[in-house]
């Protein structure tokens, strides 16, 4: 845990009244749970008593005091799902993962949760994995769902998905194009930028397809690392004052030739992005 990170988060919300939930929420977005030291640090920085913070953290089910897995599975055992065998599905999930509801697998891959309703009663029994809804789940489906989650549910089929279109970007400082036609990613020219993190320098090639998150990099950037992006032509750092709405890391701006600015999150693995069209 980094005390500086906590301090930045607290300072950002210091002026507002009743900002405790926002602070805790942002800490959880950073660490995926609320570490004990972080709560103690927040207590010291805000002047609120530790028990008040702990009370809020234990009151809301949204907050977790234990580290959670990469993938979140919620199985509905509410009334409508229960009568259609939600409990059996939940038991199957428990059996497949080898943990009880509310626990995380030892390899930190899955966190299993039983929930009372997911608001999709007509589709019961329902399970939600990483924000993806699975309807009318059968006992035999569970294994498939978990396998797909391991592969990554957010993978998109570039060729068939209508939402995906190529964009053409340039450096916001020197206006030099960042496109690299000599290296294709997803079958289109890639966006090439230089990067640095923890004294390591390299390059990143991003897919120019809007909606695709395919990234190639040299060297490999570990997940959750915040990376500094540079223009390969003028060597200026691509940086803005805005921070990612999902994880709080800095945003990287690029000019879109079609008109507008795209900002992507500088954290590896985070999919936060903003597109301002002009």
């Amino acid at each position: 845990m980094n005390i500086q990170t906590i301090e930045n988060i607290v300072n950002k919300h210091q002026q507002q009244q009743g900002s405790l939930i926002a602070i805790l929420s942002e800490i959880q977005a950073t660490y995926s749970y609320l570490p004990t030291d972080a709560l103690q640090a927040v207590s010291k920085m805000t002047g609120k008593s530790l028990i008040d913070i702990y009370g809020v953290a234990t009151f809301y089910k949204y907050f977790s005091l234990q580290p959670r897995g990469k993938h979140l599975c919620s199985v509905c055992v509410g009334t409508a799902c229960h009568v259609r065998g939600g409990e059996v599905i939940a038991e199957e999930f428990e059996g497949q993962l080898g943990v009880a509801a509310g626990q995380t697998t030892p390899d930190r891959e899955f966190t299993l949760g039983k929930v009372a309703c997911l608001g999709a009663c007509a589709l019961g029994p329902v399970a939600v994995v990483d924000g993806h809804y699975f309807s009318s789940v059968k006992k035999t489906d569970v294994k498939k769902i978990l396998e797909r989650a391991r592969d990554g549910l957010d993978k998109v089929e570039v060729k068939t998905d209508q939402r995906i279109f190529p964009i053409d970007v340039s450096c916001p400082r020197c206006n030099h194009s960042l496109m690299d036609a000599s290296h294709l990613v997803d079958g289109h020219p890639s966006i090439k930028v230089t990067t640095s993190f923890e004294r390591t320098h390299g390059w990143v090639r991003l897919s120019c397809l809007w909606g695709s998150y395919t990234v190639e990099s040299q060297p490999e950037i570990p997940l959750d690392t915040v990376v500094h992006f540079f223009c390969p032509h003028c060597h200026a750092e691509l940086v803005t004052a805005t921070s990612c709405a999902d994880c709080g890391a800095g945003m990287v701006p690029m000019i879109v030739r079609q008109g507008g600015v795209i900002q992507i999150c500088s954290r590896r693995g985070c999919k936060g992005h903003m597109l301002d069209l002009v």
Binding site: I51, I53, Y54
Partner: peptide, 25 residues
């Protein structure tokens, strides 16, 4: 002192110190 308070919610609501450890305050 604000050493003890309510923790949890509903059925699992309880009174005690944070993390059930001896409180510094």
């Amino acid at each position: 002192a604000r050493a003890i308070g309510f923790r949890g919610r509903g059925e699992s609501r309880s009174i005690g110190t944070p993390f059930d450890m001896k409180s510094e305050v």
